[in-house]
Design a protein around this nucleic acid. Structure first.
Lengths: 373, 373
DNA sequence: CTAACTTCCTTCGATATCGAAGCCAATGGG
DNA sequence: CCCATTGGCTTCGATATCGAAGGAAGTTAG
């Protein structure tokens, strides 16, 4: 099902090749899925030198996922097909500091409205995915001691949303979703990928062996590593000189403000850099060195196939160039030999894609129910 | 097979519970394995309130693994059963700088002799495992740009040994083997474990999701991370102020020598610390702070369930205490909430255990052949 | 245009796994 | 001491997967 949903397989033969199942087994399963209304047959594909394959795709009536990627003051909403590909997108201004109850209710309403607006009122909602800018406990679907989400600590987000809608709900940290989306969209053949999200904060998601690494729920944190610096800056976490306190978009904005340059939001910093404002470029280079220093240790340790730099700050060329330079200079040759360092290719909807992907993974249950009938 | 080999299952019922297979399927398989001579039935186990189980164990004639853990001037040899449990152990003085050809030939001879000495001449050798103090490419079984193994670069260790003996051969970095052994022996229920090997060098092996993480072959390197320090020391890798250049056993020995205290080998440093020699204790504390600083970043990033400190230096109490202190102080509460920090429990044969464990994983092939007859 | 591939998909018998039911051999309470 | 209960193991019919064989629908070479 996933292979067809993601477009990796278009015919029974391809399914057999990719899944490793026998061709006969595949045929049986596909038959069932078509009968259940989840798959549809659609004409013939291109021949590869023999009989032309009968093309398979997800049936439109199979269902949709509703996905929201929440930021501090803003949410990105999407209705996606079962592959996680967006069918409709929207932006939604909402202050996460209003607390979980209000925020979540509003987001859910808007999501349903978005689906209705696009003529998908009759299509069953198979799952809801939520990206949050804070640590999420994968076992309980709760937010755990988030630094920038007042009122959300220990709130049972998953149970709340599932209770209000009655569908499977996935709650995940936004950087993790981004990592999954980026991996699936741009680097599906690589097994070990690090994705850094540089926005007003600094987030990181890790794909190990093709799957999201969560650890005990906090894996991927790089923002509170201590760095070497002249001036001491205290971080919100209580320790001095965390990476985030020096190199995050918020930190850069503060330091620019001290130079008399007012910015609001990280994308404005990118604009300044693009316009060639020297203070902005210098600040961004400094941040790049700090981030690069931290990443060298992690690249040596984790030895990934690719390091992807995303988030709104990743548009700043000198930032990315500096990070790349530091890593190639300081890391072991063995670690950088085959390392790809690239900027995001899935763009700002990476998290949406990621949520869709993970949701399909939680879908075994309803797929089973649909097939049983 | 592995479940019985490792002692996790002793009866058909336990196999069924742990493997998730149906009891009937388990019975069939066990029947085959007994007939093939790989399993043996041995009396009855303890009742759990009902009929007593029929105890299963590996048949002695099922086979053995030969394992060698090579250090710079010394090798630890073992004959192990298919569970990786040592049946016979030996030490062997050999200079790895003599080059791969001589060293490997000598080691293989000694391994076969060791088996013969213990009346295992008739038992088939099912695999050979080698731990090496340098990076190993998992795909080819070659050593790749090792810093302290002159003459070994790109030598096809696996093919060489397999060619000379005709059995499956596993070649792996020593810290990785140690991580596997430690994980299996002491922390089998935890999924994410970091193992640090503190000896004359600094090594690290990582277990992710219950399996060894290799990355592209270099994963787990922590010795060439740049650290903050007053004095500048150049590392053999060409960069200044690597962790290894300041905090490894070799570096400590050098710094003690500068104070007029001659030591040879890291275990002597441990002795000095135990004897309360202040310079040694201070040196070790300093190293602990540096190592702890580096580990902080990795613990936040990787968020393991346990951090195990092994290697010959791990006997130095103040070293371990300092590392532990730094980590608990600097890491995110979320990362240390459930973190175990412990010293090695499998002891110096951890690598042997690890090799045995991995070898059983490579054994599918001959198990299949044996069952077919 | 024909003949000889290739590739796609289905049919059909062999095999493996499963789960329910039942027998076996202990424990433990009355 | 007896018998209900528990857990261990096997038997047996139902189901799922597989692989080989073959038919269907193309492409390519002569």
């Amino acid at each position: 099902m996933r292979l067809v949903a993601t477009g990796r397989a278009e015919s029974r033969a391809e399914l057999a090749r990719l899944s490793g199942l026998a061709a006969s087994s595949v045929s049986l399963r596909v038959e069932q899925l078509i009968e259940a209304g989840l798959f549809a047959e659609e004409g013939a594909g291109a021949s590869r030198g023999g009989r032309r394959p009968r093309r398979l795709r997800l049936a439109r009536e199979a269902g949709v996922f509703l996905v929201a990627d929440l930021g501090a003051h803003h949410a990105r909403l999407a209705v996606a097909d079962l592959a996680g590909a967006p069918l409709a997108l929207a932006d939604f201004a909402c202050d996460i500091a209003a607390g979980p109850d209000k925020t979540l209710t509003a987001v859910i309403d808007r999501l349903h409205a978005l689906a209705a607006d696009h003529g998908l009122r009759e299509v069953p909602v198979r799952g809801i995915g939520l990206g949050l800018p804070g640590p999420v406990d994968p076992a309980t679907g709760q937010v755990v001691s988030p630094s920038r989400m007042p009122g959300w600590n220990d709130f049972p987000v998953r149970d709340f949303v599932a209770g209000h809608t009655g569908v499977p709900v996935l709650v995940e940290n936004d950087a993790n979703l981004m990592a999954v989306g980026e991996h699936r969209h741009s680097w599906p053949s690589l097994d070990n990928v690090m994705v850094i999200k540089l926005g007003s904060g600094i987030g990181c998601g890790v794909i190990v062996d093709g799957r999201l690494h969560r650890g005990r729920g906090a894996a991927g944190d790089i923002s509170h590593v201590r760095i070497l610096s002249e001036a001491t800056v205290d971080c919100s976490c209580g320790h001095p000189d965390c990476l985030e306190a020096h190199a995050s978009g918020a930190a850069l904005a503060a330091s620019l403000a001290a130079h008399g340059i007012a910015v609001d939001g990280p994308s404005q910093i990118v604009d300044l850099v693009t316009d060639g404002v020297p203070q902005a470029t210098a600040a961004v280079r400094g941040a790049g060195r700090l981030i690069g220093d931290v990443l060298t240790a992690l690249v040596n340790f984790f030895n990934p196939d690719a390091l992807v730099i995303g988030g709104s700050m990743s548009g700043a060329e000198p930032l990315v160039a500096t990070i790349r330079g530091v890593i190639y200079e300081r890391c072991l040759p063995l670690a950088t030999r085959n390392l790809e360092i690239a900027t995001s290719r899935a763009g700002r909807d990476a998290s949406i894609l990621g949520a869709g992907h993970l949701l399909l993974g939680v879908s075994d249950e309803w797929i089973g129910r649909v097939l049983e009938r």
